[in-house]
Design a protein around this nucleic acid. Structure first.
Length: 271
DNA sequence: AACATACCCAACCGCAACGCC
DNA sequence: GGGCGTTGCGGTTGGGTATGT
């Protein structure tokens, strides 16, 4: 019944990655590109399953990842996107350059969920809790999933309502901007939320919002960060694949490699 | 200082989707 | 069209760290 787990082989290591393993993986990906994850551990000399390698790379080692907590604007964007997309973390992450689905999922479960509950908003339906209680007393058969906005199902109304709740919330009106939240981020969020075509494209899976983000605000972080000059990973994952044809150093990726390896180094020092 | 509890997040698991033959 | 292998995704867990008593 079902497929065999990929990690059931003897000798396959599990648990936290060591700096040495990180280095091996980074070096392998940067020289060979992302190909057939199943073969990566063998070729890279790692005693890990391919799945674990992929996860480690996409969630932690990728050179284009942002670090640190989500900014206020990013958080607001996540809330807004969640109201429309539900728990589709990968889709949400695709709209936030440098953020992973895992990171967003974790942040949602540990921070945003509580924040919304504190604000009296149901984190699942994005409806005010008291309103929902009243509604559920009228119709006890409706499930939370049914409250989620669906494409073509009065989306406009739900979007307006959701925005109303979120943008006029106590949290937003009374609290000042977080220290690390830039005005650019706020403008970005505003433009995204007010741009119907962008929102529609999310449902239709057309042009990723990431592209728009990178186009309109090419640098959400400080301008000294070289990585901000890179295209988004989802958009241009081929840049690494191309490396194997031309050699990564031809593209000046020494900096990237150094950056990635520096990440490992920082981790080594920190732990 | 020692212990308990809460919190955070990296990593794992299992299923679904996809692509190839 | 069905079988099989690979990758992607979302839910969950467990260990480390921070905070409270």
């Amino acid at each position: 019944m079902g497929r065999q787990p990929c990690c059931d082989k003897l000798g396959v290591k599990k648990g936290p990655w060591t700096a040495e393993e990180d280095k091996k993986l980074i070096k392998f990906i940067l020289t060979n590109g992302q190909c057939c994850w199943r073969a990566v551990p063998k070729l890279a000399g790692l005693r890990r399953c391919g799945k674990s390698c992929r996860l480690r790379w996409t969630n932690y080692l990728r050179p284009d990842l942002k670090r640190g907590l989500l900014t206020e604007a990013e958080e607001q964007l996540v809330i807004d996107l969640h109201a429309r997309l539900g728990n589709r973390w990968s889709k949400i992450a695709a709209r936030l350059p440098g953020r992973t689905d895992n990171e967003i999922k974790n942040h949602w479960n540990t921070h945003i969920k509580k924040k919304l509950l504190k604000m009296g908003i149901d984190p699942v339906t994005h409806e005010p809790l008291n309103k929902q209680a009243a509604a559920s007393s009228q119709d006890s058969s409706s499930s939370p999933a049914e409250h989620l906005p669906q494409p073509g199902n009065n989306l406009d109304d739900q979007v307006k309502e959701t925005n109303g709740v979120l943008l006029n919330s106590e949290e937003n009106s009374s609290s000042s901007q977080a220290e690390n939240s830039s005005g650019d981020d706020s403008l970005l969020l505003e433009s995204i939320c007010s741009d119907d075509s962008l929102l529609n494209s999310m449902w239709l899976d057309e042009t990723p919002l990431v592209e728009a983000l990178w186009d309109t605000t090419p640098n959400l972080e400080n301008t000294n960060n070289n990585m901000s000059l890179l295209p988004s990973w989802e958009e241009n994952c081929a840049w690494l694949l191309d490396c194997q044809d031309f050699g990564i150093h031809d593209f000046g990726f020494n900096e990237i490699e150094a950056n990635a390896l520096q990440t490992v180094g920082m981790k080594e020092e920190g732990h």
